[in-house]
Computed example of a mutant assay.
Amino acid sequence: MHIHVLQHVEFEGLGSIANWITKINAQLTWTRFYANDILPSLSGIDLLIILGGPMSIHDEDEYPWLIDEKKFLSIALHNETAVLGICLGSQLIATVCGAQVYPASHKEIGWFPIYGVETDKKMFRLPNQLEAFHWHGETFDLPTGSQRLAYSASCDNQAFQIGTKVIGLQFHLESTQSSINAIVPHCDDELIPDQPYIQSADQLYNTPSDCFFTINSQMYSILEYLTSK
C-alpha cells in the first residue's frame, strides 16, 4: 500500500497515524509544502492524507502552493483515490467540492465532545459521543452529495463523508501528547482566556492519557475503513 501525505507546517504531523502506517508496513511518501516539495503523480497512491495547519484555505496570496494543492486534490477526488482530510485538510476537501468555508461562531481549541449521527450502512459510523481534540477557527458547509458524520455544541458540521472513499474530519483523532506539545508553542496566541471553547495551555499540556487511546483507536478504524474499499 502506498500512502501519500500533504503536510502544511512542520509542527503538525501524522501523530498516531505513523504507528498505524508502520504496523501495516505501507510505503509512505510526503509533500511538505513548507519545504517547497513538488506534488507527485497520483498514479499508485492508495490513500492521500491531508494534514492540518494554522493557515486558511483562502490564504492563497500568502501560501500560493494552496492553488496547486487544490488542483491536485480535485484530480484525486475525480480519480476516486481514497482521501482523509484532517482539520485544514477537511476544509480543503469541502472547498474543492464547491462548499463554503468561513469563520466559525466560536474557535474550538482543546478537548470537547463531538456527536456522531446516524448514517447509511455503507458509511463510517462515529460514536454517539466522543471527546475529541480540536484546534480550528473556521468551519464548512457540507459538500453537495456528502453525508454529515458528526457535529458539536458550537459547530454543526464536524465531519463528513463523500461516497465510501473520502472522509473529512475537522477535529484531530490522530493527536498524541507529543503532537499537541508541538502545536501549542507555535499557536498559543490563539489561547484566549475566558472563551467557551478554548482551553488553556496548561490543560492541553496535561491531557489524561486515556483520552489519546480513545481517539487514536477511532482514527485507526477510519484508516482501516478507507483502505478496505
Rank of each mutant, 00 (worst) to 15 (best):
V5T: 12
E10H: 13
E10A: 14
F11G: 11
E12G: 09
E12C: 08
G13S: 12
L14S: 08
G15P: 06
A18I: 09
N19P: 00
N19K: 11
I21C: 10
I21F: 01
T22M: 03
K23V: 01
W30D: 10
T31S: 15
I38C: 13
P40G: 14
P40T: 12
S41K: 14
G44L: 05
G44H: 12
L47Y: 11
I50L: 13
G53I: 06
P54Q: 12
M55P: 03
S56W: 01
I57P: 02
I57V: 15
D59E: 10
D59G: 08
E60F: 01
D61L: 10
Y63D: 06
Y63N: 13
W65N: 12
L66M: 08
I67Y: 06
D68H: 14
E69L: 06
K71D: 08
K71S: 11
F72I: 07
I75T: 15
H78W: 00
N79F: 02
N79V: 02
N79R: 14
T81I: 15
L84Y: 09
G85I: 10
I86H: 05
I86K: 08
I86P: 07
L88F: 04
Q91N: 03
Q91H: 10
L92K: 03
I93R: 11
I93Q: 08
A94Q: 06
T95Y: 00
V96T: 13
C97L: 15
A99S: 09
Y102E: 03
P103N: 10
K107L: 00
W111K: 09
F112V: 04
P113G: 09
P113R: 08
I114N: 02
Y115C: 08
E118T: 12
E118Y: 00
E118C: 02
T119E: 02
M123T: 14
M123G: 01
L126H: 12
P127N: 10
L130Q: 14
E131W: 02
E131I: 11
E131A: 07
A132R: 07
H136I: 02
T139L: 01
F140I: 03
D141M: 00
T144M: 05
T144I: 10
G145I: 01
S146I: 03
A150F: 04
Y151W: 11
Y151P: 00
A153H: 07
A153D: 13
S154G: 14
D156H: 07
N157M: 01
N157L: 08
N157V: 02
A159H: 05
A159Q: 03
Q161R: 10
Q161M: 13
I162F: 05
G163Q: 05
V166K: 10
V166W: 01
S175A: 15
S178V: 11
S178A: 14
S179C: 06
N181T: 13
N181C: 04
V184S: 06
C187Y: 05
I192R: 07
P193G: 12
P193N: 13
P196H: 09
I198R: 12
I198S: 07
A201S: 15
L204Y: 02
D210M: 00
D210I: 01
C211R: 13
I215W: 01
S217N: 12
Q218F: 01
M219S: 08
I222Y: 04
I222A: 05
L223W: 06
L223D: 04
E224D: 15
Y225F: 15
L226C: 09
